[in-house]
Simulated assay, not measured.
Amino acid sequence: MTRVPGTTMLDAIAHEILTPDAVETIATEVSVVLNKLHTLRQSPSDAGKVMLSASGHDLPDPVVFFEDRSGPYSSIVELWAHCGDYSDLAEMKGDVDPATLDIMAADPIRYVHPDLRFYNIIVRDGHLSGIIDWEDSGWFPSSWQVHTLRWPRFGCNGPWLQYWLKYRFSKEAEAAYAASKSFLIKSPV
């Protein structure tokens, strides 16, 4: 293991080392990493499973503020039923418009960093040096990354949040993100 040179983006912002333009530059560089992650594909034995770690195990459960673990789920819609606080998939199907379910099911499964906030971004000289805290990353619907980067909270605010609010993810991820807001009570991340 090698130490990533630099400082967290959080510290750089707190010490006023980064300008809003530098934050945008770093966010653009992070988007290049995200595009490379989107080229990864699941192994055939795990195809279709979500909330699945790289090692094939469960991940921290967002419904209970990550204090328990859950997953993997056999489908994207099954995961969203869990996050939507439905007792099961049948209850969700009885409550959510079928067109919304189709949009959610069409969202491609991608490898996602679910805590991609500026305290996990390492910067150096105004550029991305590295991304840390990958242990809870795994296979999720691609819209999960959109939720991660567009939900205002500590580590995702100011120019960083503004960049991701304007950034356009894939058509399927954007559609699923918009559709998920019709049944989710809170962000899944």
Rank of each mutant, 00 (worst) to 15 (best):
M51Q: 10
A81E: 01
D115Q: 09
I132P: 01
S74V: 06
L37I: 12
Q145D: 10
G130A: 12
K49R: 07
A22W: 00
S142K: 04
S187Q: 07
T7M: 14
L59F: 01
C83L: 02
F65C: 07
T100K: 04
P44D: 15
Q42W: 02
F66P: 06
N120H: 13
G138Y: 08
T148I: 07
I103Y: 00
D95T: 15
V4A: 12
L59E: 08
R168I: 09
E16V: 05
L184I: 11
M9D: 03
L37D: 04
M9Q: 12
L89G: 03
V33M: 01
T7F: 03
G6K: 11
L79K: 00
E78P: 02
M92E: 08
T2S: 09
Q42M: 04
H113L: 14
I185Q: 10
C83N: 02
V4S: 06
A105M: 02
Y167D: 09
P62D: 01
P60F: 04
L59P: 08
A54R: 11
S87R: 15
D115P: 03
Y163A: 09
D11K: 13
R168D: 12
L161A: 08
S143F: 09
E78H: 09
S143R: 10
A179E: 07
W80R: 05
D21N: 11
L79M: 04
D133Y: 09
I76K: 01
F118Y: 15
P114I: 03
I109D: 03
A47V: 06
V77C: 01
P72W: 08
P44S: 13
Y86R: 05
S70E: 03
R3M: 06
A105R: 02
F66A: 08
W144F: 03
T28A: 13
A90Y: 08
I122T: 09
D136C: 10
I103W: 00
D88A: 09
N35T: 14
S142F: 00
